[in-house]
Measured scan of single mutants.
Amino acid sequence: MDVFMKGLSKAKEGVVAAAEKTKQGVAEAAGKTKEGVLYVGSKTKEGVVHGVATVAEKTKEQVTNVGGAVVTGVTAVAQKTVEGAGSIAAATGFVKKDQLGKNEEGAPQEGILEDMPVDPDNEAYEMPSEEGYQDYEPEA
């Protein structure tokens, strides 16, 4: 019985440690998101679009440190934060509304985080759909 109880105690310690790591990862992701939003706020009209992409990228980098179902929630929060940063930029006159959601080359930025393969159960990952990809044929 002692062996059984000791095993359960060790398992509990492992769960607590994993929860603490997840909590730490979420806190880091939130900190990076805040950094990115402050970065966007300090940019001029020309830099705002690039700044919004930076927020998304920093958040995406930190999301990889967070495991399990938390990833889905962090990704949703990050996307809403990026959308909010863009709205703030438009409201303050840093950028025109028609410039939001495009990178410096004018290509749409939507789907940055949505296409990231995420499995809350950590069982399997699927690649994003290939609808947006084109076949590449090298020139002879």
Rank of each mutant, 00 (worst) to 15 (best):
V55W: 09
D135M: 08
A91D: 08
Q24I: 07
V66M: 14
D119L: 04
A30V: 09
L38Y: 13
V40C: 03
V74C: 14
K23N: 00
Q62K: 06
A91M: 10
L38W: 05
D2A: 01
I88H: 03
E20L: 09
T75F: 08
A30W: 11
K6C: 03
V77D: 02
G86H: 11
K43D: 00
Y133S: 03
K10Q: 03
V71G: 02
P138L: 10
G93V: 11
V77Q: 02
S9A: 04
E104S: 11
A89F: 13
A30L: 10
T33G: 04
I88T: 04
N122M: 11
A140I: 10
E83N: 07
D119V: 07
L113I: 03
G31S: 15
E83S: 04
V16D: 01
Q79K: 10
A85D: 05
V26Y: 11
G51S: 03
A85F: 05
E131H: 10
G106V: 06
G14D: 02
H50D: 12
G31W: 07
G14I: 15
Y136A: 06
K80A: 13
Q99D: 13
Q99S: 13
A17T: 06
T64V: 12
Q134L: 06
Q62I: 13
D2E: 01
Q62N: 08
T81Y: 10
M1Y: 00
K43V: 11
N103V: 13
E137W: 05
G7Y: 03
T59P: 01
V118A: 03
D98F: 05
K96V: 13
E139W: 10
T64K: 03
E139Q: 05
P120T: 12
Q134H: 03
V15Q: 00
T64N: 12
L38G: 01
K6I: 11
S42D: 04
P138A: 09
P138Y: 07
V77K: 05
E137S: 09
D2N: 08
L8I: 03
E57K: 11
G25H: 13
E83Y: 14
T59S: 03
Q99C: 10
K6A: 10
V40K: 01
P128A: 07
V118T: 02
K43M: 15
E126M: 04
K32A: 07
T54F: 11
S129A: 04
E123S: 14
S87Q: 10
G41K: 02
D119T: 15
P117S: 03
N103H: 08
A78V: 12
E123G: 05
A11L: 11
P128Q: 07
V48L: 10
G67H: 10
K34D: 00
N122P: 05
M127R: 05
I88N: 02
E130P: 13
E130N: 14
V66A: 09
V63M: 14
S129Q: 05
A78P: 02
K21C: 03
V71I: 15
K21D: 00
K6E: 01
G67K: 03
S87K: 03
S87I: 14
E83M: 11
D115E: 13
K60P: 04
M1W: 00
E126F: 05
K23T: 05
Y133E: 07
E105D: 15
K58A: 10
M1N: 00
Q79N: 09
P120G: 06
N122G: 02
T72S: 13
E20F: 11
K97P: 05
E61I: 05
P128K: 05
E139Y: 14
G111K: 06
E139K: 11
A90N: 10
Y125D: 07
M5T: 01
G132S: 02
S9M: 15
K34F: 07
D2T: 03
D121Y: 08
D135H: 10
A56K: 14
Q109M: 03
E46G: 05
G84M: 15
L38S: 05
Q99E: 05
D121A: 14
K21S: 06
K21E: 00
P138V: 06
V15R: 00
H50N: 06
K45R: 07
K58H: 11
E20A: 13
N103S: 12
K96M: 11
A11D: 00
K6N: 12
G106A: 07
F4K: 00
A140G: 07
G67V: 09
T81E: 02
E28N: 01
K12D: 00
S9T: 03
A69C: 15
Q24V: 06
K45G: 04
E110H: 02
Y125P: 10
A140R: 10
Q99G: 13
M1I: 00
N65R: 09
E104A: 15
I112M: 06
F94I: 07
D135F: 10
E139S: 08
K97M: 05
K97V: 15
T59A: 12
V74W: 15
Q99I: 12
M127C: 05
K43F: 11
G73E: 04
P117E: 02
V70T: 02
A30I: 13
V55T: 02
V37S: 01
V49E: 02
G73Y: 04
F4S: 00
A27W: 15
K12C: 15
V71R: 06
E46K: 06
F4L: 10
A140M: 04
A27L: 15
V52W: 09
E83C: 06
D135P: 03
D135E: 10
L113R: 13
E57A: 07
G132C: 08
G47S: 11
G73S: 10
A90W: 15
A69M: 09
G68H: 15
D119N: 07
A85K: 02
K34L: 08
A17L: 05
E57G: 04
F94K: 03
D115I: 04
A56H: 12
L113P: 11
K58F: 13
K58C: 12
A29Q: 01
Y136V: 12
V77L: 10
P108M: 12
T44Y: 15
E61L: 09
V55I: 14
V82E: 02
